[in-house]
């Protein structure tokens, strides 16, 4: 385990026909870290994961895991994955699934340990089809860990789960993080990435638009939307520090900014008659948009 990086995408571009899924993506997974790949649906997260799993062929660029091709036999033996799939066959029991997946790996974890790690003790005798959604995801999580992997991919592990169940699964993943395994998880919940990851890579429309510690990313996406009726022009506010985007919507001026206090002060200075003012937190989409703006427009921040 002496590789500086456990897995890497270098200059990867991936297309499905005319649709570009990834464009010039560089992604590095460091040893022992939990990396969250954050992005909205269609951002290219799953494509990136499958390139690293070797289940998609690399079109342009390079993908390596443990310094080898992602589908090399030695790589498969040291890697685990939890994919966005509807599940394993309904008619086999939890322990049968675990028994089968353990058989795939040369040095599997003990079945009892896996049950404990995934928090599914006591349901091992039940058929997969009879389990709840959360239990199924935990089983899939256990299957990902069967081979005692050095690298685990969790592709949207909590998608479709309700909040409570999702938080329960976070507990298992967080405990797993303490085991020191390198983990790549994809999510479109910033909150999930924040709760689980050491580092976040933000993907948007196939590009890495941000990368950093969760606190950094969080602050950069903590945008607010300021809305009011004023005679201040769109251009005039564009130069205010923190403003990401400004536009006119009907009578309203709408400004997206990371520093709403400074903006509001500036607006009142220029137009004491402004009215109908609202300041709201922007959604994740807008946060990504903010990041996109930064990445799309390389010129100095206005």
């Amino acid at each position: 385990m002496s590789e500086p990086d456990i897995a890497r995408l270098s200059g990867v571009t991936h297309r499905y026909g005319s649709v570009v899924a990834l464009e010039e993506v560089d992604l590095e997974v460091r040893r022992g870290e939990v990396l969250a790949v954050l992005g909205p649906n269609g951002a290219g997260k799953t494509t990136a994961i499958h390139l690293l799993l070797g289940s998609l062929p690399v079109q342009t660029g390079k993908a390596t895991v443990f310094g080898q091709r992602p589908d090399a036999p030695g790589v498969r033996a040291r890697r685990g994955a939890m994919l966005q799939i509807s599940g394993v066959p309904d008619t086999l029991t939890v322990s049968e699934h675990i028994d089968l997946f353990r058989a795939y790996y040369p040095t599997p974890l003990a079945a009892a340990d896996l049950l404990a790690m995934a928090g599914i003790e006591g349901i091992e005798g039940r058929r997969f089809g009879k389990l709840s959604g959360g239990q199924k995801q935990r089983v899939m999580f256990a299957l990902a860990l069967c081979g005692d992997p050095h690298l685990v991919f969790l592709d949207e592990p909590t998608a479709g789960l309700d909040v409570e169940v999702r938080r329960g699964l976070w507990e298992e993943i967080r405990r797993h993080r303490e085991s020191g395994r390198t983990t790549v998880l994809t999510t479109h919940y910033l909150e999930e990435a924040d709760a689980l990851a050491d580092r976040i890579v933000v993907l948007h429309r196939g590009r890495v638009i941000a990368e950093g510690a969760p606190s950094t990313i969080k602050s950069r996406t903590a945008a607010r939307r300021v809305r009011c009726v004023t005679r201040v022009t769109v251009d005039a506010v564009a130069s205010v520090p923190g403003v990401v985007r400004s536009e006119t919507r009907g009578q309203h001026l709408e400004v997206l900014t990371s520093r709403p206090e400074a903006l509001v002060r500036e607006l009142f200075d220029r137009d004491p008659d402004l009215h109908d003012l609202t300041v709201v937190g922007a959604g994740l989409e807008e946060a990504f948009l903010a990041l996109t703006r930064e990445s799309d427009e390389p010129e100095p921040v206005r």
């Binding site: 028994d99 353990r102 058989a103 040095t107 599997p108 003990a110 079945a111």
Partner: peptide
Amino acid sequence: MKAGNRSGT
């Protein structure tokens, strides 16, 4: 591994 072998055998 020994335990797992049992189902195969």
